[in-house]
Design a protein around this nucleic acid. Structure first.
Lengths: 232, 232, 232, 232
DNA sequence: TATGAATGAGTATTCATTCAT
DNA sequence: GATGAATGAATACTCATTCAT
């Protein structure tokens, strides 16, 4: 019975703005932002256009709000972990696995973010990018910490490593299916494991694996200088 | 003088379809597919709408052609490398670095592919996805080869590893700037190095590094069962 | 003063959908459906395109609505008469004259129906045809009734007779001019008279007029088997 | 073998203009004039646009030529019969049956004429109408002859009677199916029989059937004054 | 708060026709 | 005679947003 109430609540009792955001997220993820009309959103949410414009300034605003929620949630989670106890590498592993799990838990939001960020009005887009950059930089700082600890290799740019990992995260929406055989936690731990192994300092001093036939050869080849994150 | 000729050629002598594709790629990358009007494309290419529709069936067709060219080029390159000589790991490293370099060499195309694939008409989208899947599968087969060779760890799904790497590749358009300090080759080798180290079997037999505090623990935790590649 | 009000009402006070239908009927009749642009319709109705698409799904929908109104009116009239009192022949005569008069009273609609039915989208066209078939069949049933009464000849297919008469009705738009000397009632009674005389059983038993030099000769020659009405 | 040649001739050996006309007729009948593009016509005829514009001035010209052929053929046939031997009523019956049979033999042309006449450019349309009017008038003259002979009733306008019959003829394309059970000759004789019976002077002097309850009553009620034929 | 009719600027696409070859 | 690339004007339709109620 509690379930029934809960289900009903989802349909009509939740506050109108929440219903609009939930519906918009679903539709934007499924059809893309530009292919989804305001009319479709309000129809699906069971309200009228006027109501939507009462709560949101524009269609863009809806999109922006979706981003804001997702990014603020993930930023908070990252900060909690990054500022917590443990070695840098342990915190890095936890943060990496966590962002994967939380992205998969909000996959629609993530898909929308990936597909439609470039459609936002310049001003709004700049604000989202700034938030994303903060996220990127906090994560990269962890990588740097690991380097100073001596547990992270120093021949690969921390920026590049961060991009490497977030590439995998952003890509999740392109292939992950909830119906598939992989559980979110497995994906998170698998990606974190590959990532951390990939950037770990190996036991032998030489980096990267001296003696192995590597096309790159010398340390530092892989670009340590900064790259501005998330420019597009 | 040769330059002048070349410049002129770019402007008007190249075949109309080529000019249209070049211009469309640039505009789609800069503003997004839906925000770019056919009128803008033909104006920029110096032709009329009728001419465009003489060569292309639709705006979608233009997009599809951009994809087709990029994917076919990358597929060919992958096959050349994958079917070439060397250990699986060597070929994997070369293929990984190569796809990064070639993606950076055609970054506009790659950005368009990343941002706009979901906008294609279903039928066309299915064809692009099929091509992408072939690519994914050839790459994954290399990872599997490495596993049989004993040089690639077996506790992480080959599919997941492939997604891990292609996440980084698809993400390039979001952060790489030609004006930045990283050369395409450095990026390619850096990403390949991290990726390969991340999936390498470590010297000690145990996988994953038994004795290390790993959140996952047991082998096989990271999902060896297949995931359907590139579903969205 | 009442006149002024009335005129003004015609121009702007009547509901927008009514104004659009009236204007569209006039223009479709005068220039044909395909030669009339949506822009012309909305300009003539004094509204914007958006308003039109608020009330009608498409230009086709406008056409369909014109048909629907005309056919539903005529079907109702036919049913009232056909189900009323009197011999079959009397009801047939009344129905025949009535459909002519009512067609002439809405000649624009009839012209549109005649000229543009084949342009409707298949689905919509099928619905209009179905309505028209109902009409045809109710009328034919009256002819059959007359045959059973013994007042209608049995050597001519009831279907063919019905087509014969409705040919004349559909043709009205091709020649009738309100400014001409024939009043609608005269036309209706003239056509009904010819039609009924044409299908009447003659006093002498033999059918068709035995002894007269008829190219057909035997009874039943003129096709009594069913023809599917209104297929195109 | 001769057959094979003949078939091949139909496909490619017949003169280009003939092939174009045949194909255009088929397509115009099936889809309507405006819905058929010049490209479709030339593709179906196996020639190029340039070839079509070599033989015909415009798309309208194609339509006009289709009309011209049909009308000239029917006019010739009418004149041959009307100017031949026999009573007026006999010639009327033969002409009526003949025009039905010949219309059914060229049903596509007739459908095009019916559906698309109103789309012709004014000048061309005027010429077609003039031809049609000649046809109408020759036929009506036959009716008048019958009246002078005393075999045709005089209480119905000869014009109205002519329109009555040609309504049935023009309507053929809306319902006749070659696959149905009625042969063209049966249709022609059936329609001619109904028409002639409908306009025949009855044996008893009184017109129309005195003593019968007729809504019209007196002779002459049904409009003997001229109507301009084919105004639309 | 909320409605829904109305706006108006925008979109992709079609197509008869021309013309250099 | 015949080609087919190119034109350019026209078309139906969409949609975020506003505003009187």
């Amino acid at each position: 019975m509690a379930d029934q109430v809960a289900r009903k609540a989802t349909a009509t009792d939740r506050p109108v703005p929440d219903r609009l955001l939930a519906v918009a997220t679903r539709l934007f993820a499924a059809r893309g932002f530009e292919r989804t009309s305001v009319q479709e959103i309000v129809d699906a949410a069971g309200v009228t256009k006027g109501a939507m414009y009462h709560y949101f300034d524009s269609k863009d605003d809806l999109l922006h709000e979706i981003y804001r929620r997702l990014l603020s949630m993930q930023t908070k989670a990252l900060e909690r972990i990054a500022d917590g106890p443990g070695t840098a590498v342990d915190r890095l592993r936890e943060a990496a696995a966590d962002v994967v799990v939380s992205t998969l838990a909000h996959l629609d939001d993530a898909v929308v973010l990936m597909n439609s960020l470039h459609l936002l009005a310049p001003h709004t887009r700049a604000r989202v990018r700034a938030e994303r950059r903060r996220y990127h930089e906090r994560f990269r700082a962890l990588v740097d910490e690991g380097r100073h600890e001596g547990s992270v290799r120093s021949d690969v740019s921390a920026d590049l490593a961060t991009h490497h990992f977030f590439g995998a995260v952003h890509h999740l929406g392109s292939w992950y299916r909830a119906e598939g055989s992989l559980r979110p936690r497995e994906v998170g731990e698998g990606l974190a494991e590959m990532f951390l192994t990939g950037i770990a300092r190996t036991e032998k001093g030489a980096q990267p694996d001296a003696g192995k036939k590597s096309p790159a050869g010398a340390a530092g080849t892989f670009g340590n200088s900064g790259t501005s994150p998330e420019p597009a």
